[in-house]
Simulated scan of single mutants.
Amino acid sequence: MITHRSSRHQWLAAASILLTLWLSGCTQTTRNTSADSKPSVVATSTIIADLTEEVGGNEIQLKGILQPGADPHVYEPVPADSVALEKANLILYNGYNLEPGLIKLMNASGMKARKLAVGEAVKSLQLDKGKGEVVPDPHVWGDADNVIEMVNAIRDGLIELSPEDKQKFTQNAAQLTSELKQLDTWITQQIATIPADKRRLVTTHDAFQYYARAYGMAVVGTLIGISTEEQPSAQTVRRLVESVKAAGVPAIFAETTINPALIKTVAQEAGVKLAPKQLYSDSIGAVGSDGDSYIKMMVANTRSIVEALGGKYTPFQPTDQPKTTS
């Protein structure tokens, strides 16, 4: 026999369970809504993604398209890239045709997001490809001072996207800019330790013109031009070997995103060593490597250049942030 009291207890228990489930559902809904309310930002290259993460912090949902070590010049988009770009509120890319496959995809119909060419905030160097063809050099990040302009462009793009987070974006950008200024000064000091007649670069592709111009070096030659799509001929290899011999450099450099086989051949035929550490050119390094951020990548490159060309390396230690190991 069910009494009135037991019936009442059953009703209260059921009500309690329903209330608990309702509150739990409300909490979950609130959490999801909060996460979903963050603007969606897509960055193409690993360098742009790293800078954007520093400026945007926890106020954005950031998706990077390229993985560390991937070559933006020859990257072929996959279906997942289309999905990410279509869902984005803001797309940040380098520009100057660094990532032609992704730029073509971005310009396709259905992409409603605002597109910002971060690298084009910097006035480009113009390179002669021969036969009267002059093109902009997209490797603007080789000069750390240029990257300050890129950071400002990212900051302004994020503020336009999410005005309520202006203060946070501005603070993050200012902190990053402070470290970039110190990096710029430090690189100049490091390169100055290399004997003047050895401040010459030979690399796999033409990605270090900005670096060389900013920090007092000369690019003696490269196997290929600004795009890694190019294939060097036997004549190009022979000419580079002769240039290396004439320049008298003690070492030449391979790059992390390009097969080192041909540059090794150049080193052997020219009678010089191949620097033991490859340079990061178009991508930062994998997580845990000595180049897994833009700043660490520039520090690693500078160390490799200084040590291989006879300079004296001193670790980079920014004064207003925790010291980094290098």
Rank of each mutant, 00 (worst) to 15 (best):
S6F: 11
S7M: 15
W11M: 15
S16N: 02
I17T: 14
L18W: 11
L23C: 13
L23R: 06
S24N: 08
C26F: 03
R31M: 03
D36R: 15
K38S: 03
V42S: 14
S45M: 11
I47D: 15
I47M: 08
A49M: 12
L51V: 08
E53Q: 12
G56C: 04
G57K: 04
Q61R: 01
G64S: 08
I65H: 09
P68G: 05
A70K: 02
A70V: 14
P72M: 14
E76W: 08
E76R: 07
E86L: 00
N89Y: 04
L90C: 05
L90R: 15
Y93M: 03
Y96V: 00
L98Y: 07
I103S: 15
M106A: 12
M106S: 12
L116R: 15
A117I: 07
E120R: 02
S124Q: 01
Q126R: 07
L127W: 01
D128C: 03
D128K: 00
D128L: 00
D137K: 05
W141I: 00
W141F: 02
D143H: 14
D143N: 09
A144P: 01
M150G: 13
V151H: 09
N152F: 03
A153N: 09
G157Y: 05
L158Y: 14
I159S: 05
P163H: 06
P163R: 02
E164T: 06
E164W: 01
D165K: 13
D165Q: 02
D165N: 10
K166S: 10
K168F: 06
K168D: 11
F169Q: 13
N172G: 05
A174T: 14
S178T: 07
Q182H: 14
W186N: 09
W186Y: 02
W186H: 13
A192G: 14
P195I: 00
V202F: 12
V202S: 10
V202A: 10
H205G: 10
H205W: 09
A207C: 15
Y211T: 04
A214N: 10
Y215G: 08
G216V: 00
T222H: 10
I224F: 03
G225K: 02
T228Y: 12
S233P: 11
A234F: 09
L240H: 02
L240Y: 10
V241Q: 09
E242V: 00
S243I: 01
V244W: 06
V244G: 15
V244I: 02
A246G: 01
A246S: 15
G248A: 09
T257A: 13
I258F: 07
A261I: 00
K264W: 02
A270Y: 13
G271L: 07
V272G: 02
V272K: 12
K273Y: 10
L274V: 14
A275D: 08
A275N: 12
P276H: 10
K277E: 07
G285V: 03
A286H: 08
D292W: 08
I295K: 03
I295Q: 01
I295T: 11
K296Y: 07
M298V: 08
M298H: 12
V299Q: 01
A300E: 14
N301I: 01
S304T: 06
T314W: 07
P315C: 05
Q317V: 14
D320Y: 08
K323T: 02
T325K: 10
T325S: 13
